[in-house]
Amino acid sequence: MPLFHHANRERNDDTRRVYALFEIAHTTVDFMAALAFIVGSVLFFYKSLQEAGTWLFLVGSILFAVKPSLRLARELKLYAMGKEENLEERFEE
């Protein structure tokens, strides 16, 4: 089954659990990135805190870069789990 195919996550209880865990991680990173940008934006209103705001913008940007990385890691994990099932089926025959 190809990457990013919906059926990969619905294959069994293990794939559903892996999918759910990655979705929780993705959502957590999303909230952290948004929070970093919001706080960074507020800090930019104060001259003395602009450097801290700049750092939070960098952290938020890095977190936004983590999101597609999590998605790819999830899909590779689900894909590999399918390959393991195929191996089991071949040995059972």
Rank of each mutant, 00 (worst) to 15 (best):
F22S: 05
V18K: 02
T27R: 06
P68Q: 13
T28M: 12
R9W: 05
L63I: 01
R90V: 12
L3D: 03
F57H: 08
A7R: 13
A80G: 04
T54L: 13
E92N: 09
L21C: 07
L35Y: 07
G60E: 08
R17S: 12
A73P: 00
A20K: 07
W55Q: 11
A73L: 13
S69K: 07
V59Y: 05
L43E: 14
L43Y: 13
L3T: 02
F91L: 14
I38D: 00
D13W: 01
L87I: 15
A52K: 03
F45S: 09
R16F: 02
E51A: 14
E93Q: 13
D13I: 03
W55T: 12
L78M: 05
L63T: 01
Y46F: 08
H5F: 10
E10D: 14
L58R: 07
H6P: 14
E92I: 09
L56C: 08
A34G: 07
V39N: 00
A20D: 12
I24N: 01
L43P: 04
L63K: 02
L76N: 00
T54E: 12
K47C: 00
F45D: 06
E23M: 11
V18S: 03
E93T: 14
L43C: 13
A34H: 01
L56T: 07
E23V: 08
F44N: 14
L72A: 12
G60A: 04
E88T: 06
L49M: 05
G60Q: 03
R16C: 04
D13P: 00
V18I: 15
R11Q: 12
L63P: 01
A20V: 00
P68C: 12
A80N: 11
Y46Q: 09
G60T: 02
E92G: 04
A65W: 07
E75H: 02
L78F: 03
G40L: 03
